[in-house]
Write a protein that binds this DNA or RNA. Structure first.
Lengths: 343, 343
DNA sequence: GGAGTGTGGTAAAACGATTTAACCACACCT
DNA sequence: AGGTGTGGTTAAATCGTTTTACCACACTCC
């Protein structure tokens, strides 16, 4: 006979009582069940009772009954990486429209703390995963673990036939290369992201295709491996600059690494763009503010997040695991001051 | 007699059967119920059965029974704002340690789409909220809505006695001011964040205190309102530079606005730091890469996220709504090239 | 007048974990 | 023998929603 303290949130039973019907009706009215035959005035009674009581369904109960939580999780290789903000926003907007919420998880941390990762995957607190991994060696394990348990969409990397969304990296890199070629460069280098990653290789192929078409060569010495962040780009360009023969322009596979590249040049007294032109892939607000402002190729990151969520939801509804290459909107050159004619 | 397709996740009942005990025992063993007296070998049987079956509790069922979801939500005024990455990371690490997961929500979007906000708040999918709002006019509504439904901790702003965590903004601003004074500046201006926000005012007070102590004055003309992002800082400094009499050094209340300030100076041919010294509050990785590199005051953002989660969890466990000023670690000056002696 | 056919509902059984009340066997004490 | 713990375990209720199976009633049609 213990009375609950305070006011508890209203349940379907409360609404049912208020409307003078059974709980089943309330549920079916609220979920707009098409197979329900009901008199319009009864439906109206239910609806207004629900409004009057400010009824909102209990998420946990729904999740239990429906065996689905209404939540997705975006796992990013580094939550503080500025590019993820864009992707997340796109994902979130699209998910909200479909009635899902999006959690954000940090891959570094999950990899480091397998228990919390396992916990996330197996408590069924999320219905599916969007994985945006770095392309490094730890990826495979995280991916396998995830795919074994939950529907998973890979962002910006892929494994044959699995659900994935990637940018049109070839086109983006090609655009960057064409820009340098148009400026008159013939000695062009490439600062890749993480060495063996699919993403890196696609960008490299785009670059090579353009050079080949113009009868130019991508010298192996001018391909240096880096990473996706600023220190990695910095180191990579230092290695490049130590060589006897240097390119006059470089394409950097990631905007953060591009900023590192600028820093390395400044440090070595290499003036950009007089001595070396730098163009990077991806665009963010702060590329306007680097020294010099960085020429980039803008990619549809927000759309990529949205597309990943679309695909994931499609898969949750029984769709197959498609692989999508996001070609719309196409990459776009954003001209700033880090590129110019070769010396 | 319909057999479930495929393998369903094991439940307590399955584990109980495997261990030859009742479900109740399984639950209590797994949750390490101290009031349970059990023979060590029985406990061992349960534990190994759970391991063998790879049992993990169903989150939805727990949430329903326990009336708590194990999830917190950090609502940020702009998910793409680089400073939030730091805060989020701190929050997430601390939450994970306590067995909670953290959702990230965008305040802009929630404010714009009240239905999804209401949905988030009332489906009980999250147990509590950390709100990091902009300090602008829309805040009050979001805050009231949140506090009416869920335990809420405010980050970086406060309302009397409510749960909140703020930085030691006075100290941070004072540090910036002292730096300028030490360089010999006597004509010092202030680019505030959003005009009336608590945060702005605290920073201003810190600045004023230092100036007053040195017998200097903060001229009202030299206080210009801005915002927390780059365009806002840009605009504010343009206004400042249009004045007849100018300061020789300015403290900018936010690092993004600080970057906007540098851009405005460049645009107007004002050389930093020769003509104007600029120091901004908060430090991020890219302040190394602006033109010129920006002198900042580093604040403990990650710790702030962690402290907010600590406080929230404390409140969820029945603790009172404390207000915390985060003084440890103290703000720290990071000297770069945007400050120098006055002309 | 009995069999079909809709109509507009209701009752009850899931979903899986937690927790309380109840139970039983056994030892110990008087 | 009867009472009292007490350690070890179980059965059953509960959380709120959804969904399946079923029911009462009116109406129609030979």
């Amino acid at each position: 006979m213990r009375a609950k303290a305070g006011s508890t949130a209203p349940t379907v039973a409360d609404v049912a009582k208020a409307a003078g019907v059974s709980p089943a009706i309330v549920s079916r009215v609220i979920n707009d069940d098409q197979s329900l035959r009901i008199r319009p005035d009864t439906r109206e009674r239910v609806l207004s009772a629900a409004k009057a009581l400010e009824y909102t369904p209990n998420g946990a109960a729904r999740a239990l009954r429906l065996a689905s939580s209404g939540a997705l999780c975006l796992v990013a290789h580094d939550v503080a990486h500025p590019l993820h903000g864009e992707t997340l926003r796109g994902a979130q907007m699209r998910a909200a429209r479909a009635g899902y919420v999006v959690l954000l998880g940090d891959a570094e941390e999950l990899a480091h703390n397998p228990q919390s990762y396992g916990n996330l995957l197996s408590t069924r607190r999320v219905d599916g995963l969007v994985l945006h991994l770095s392309g490094g060696p730890g990826d495979a394990k995280l991916r396998r673990l995830a795919e074994a348990r939950l529907p998973t969409v890979l962002i910006n990397s892929r494994t044959r036939g699995r659900g994935s969304v990637i940018l049109d990296d070839e086109a983006a890199a090609a655009l960057a290369a064409e820009h340098l070629v148009a400026l008159g460069h013939t000695r062009i280098g490439f600062v890749s992201g993480i060495a063996g990653s699919d993403r890196s290789q696609r960008r490299r192929r785009g670059l090579e295709a353009v050079l080949e078409q113009r009868g130019l060569e991508l010298k192996p010495d001018w391909i240096v491996a880096g990473g996706w962040d600023e220190p990695a780009g910095h180191q990579a360009v230092l290695r490049l600059l130590r060589q006897r023969s240097r390119p006059t322009g470089i394409v950097v596979a990631n905007v953060l690494a591009g900023i590192g590249a600028l820093a390395a040049c400044r440090e070595q007294g290499v003036e950009v763009p007089r001595d070396l032109s730098v163009v990077a892939i991806h665009d963010t607000w702060f590329t306007d503010h680097t020294n010099p402002p960085l020429t980039t190729v803008k990619t549809p990151l927000q759309e990529m997040g949205a597309a990943a969520v679309d695909l994931l939801i499609e898969m949750l509804n029984g769709g197959e695991r498609r692989s999508i290459v996001l070609r719309e909107p196409p990459p776009k050159l954003v001209l700033r001051e880090s590129t110019g004619a070769p010396p």
